[in-house]
Design a protein around this nucleic acid. Sequence first.
DNA 1: GGACATAAAATGCTCGGGCATGGTAGGGTC
DNA 2: GACCCTACCATGCCCGAGCATTTTATGTCC
Lengths: 133, 133
Amino acid sequence: MEAVSEFATPEFRVDAQWSDVLHAYHSVSGQLEHALQSGHGLGMSDFELLKILSKSCGKAKNKILMKDLEAQMYLSQSAFSRTVTRLEKAGLVERGACDNDRRSNFLAITSEGCDLLDAAGPTYRAVLSKHFA
Amino acid sequence: MEAVSEFATPEFRVDAQWSDVLHAYHSVSGQLEHALQSGHGLGMSDFELLKILSKSCGKAKNKILMKDLEAQMYLSQSAFSRTVTRLEKAGLVERGACDNDRRSNFLAITSEGCDLLDAAGPTYRAVLSKHFA
DNA sequence: GGACATAAAATGCTCGGGCATGGTAGGGTC
DNA sequence: GACCCTACCATGCCCGAGCATTTTATGTCC
């Protein structure tokens, strides 16, 4: 019982939780990154961006404001901007001007983007379901 | 009931778990990185390395083999090597040759390293306990 | 209408991290 | 000993990410 109370201090529990998160994150993100990259030439952020874009497209006429998409991602503004640039060069995404506010840009997924996302989906889900059994 | 079963598909549960991990990781690591860096000039990996080194030191005469420490961290071999180099330049850590096997190196924490680790500890625990309430 | 503050996005800079490689040391086999 | 395979660590290279800054466009207050 002594040992139990020793390992049940708040400090220990907090450390263990963080340790779990670290382990899960590194394990899954490593495998995801590798699987998506080698299988479809996509990074994790690339895939997440396409995934969110695709979902939003269903609703709002296939386009979404850059800043709104950015708000849904775990990326800084600069990293997000460069990710969009990469995907645009790859032909997976299209920028479009916004008439109401010319500072803003719309973003739309192309048919190639949809196809690649569909192809990468099973890879993505396979890695996740392997870890979260 | 329809809605419930819809949100209880295996695919959805897995996605939600991964989403939770992503959120926790980015939130905590971001704040940890910032707090440790601005407060003590340490990155997360630097702190973790010192932390593990300090624990191992208690037992084994204040030194541990590089490769053994590396095995306990979420870093590639090259990133680990460079982290050690940074900490060594900062005077927080000391490399030492291993007589039995001259391929290996011992690693020891310096008194400055211990002091800084002690100083950074409260910062570290403060961030963690804020998130894992 | 001009000055100023603010918002969206792009870009220069730097840094940490991973992959591939190199360099050196051990341990085998012949 | 010569040869080869493997282990430990360092280094060259590239890439993604964050910070700070710049650019361009809105809105506002006078």
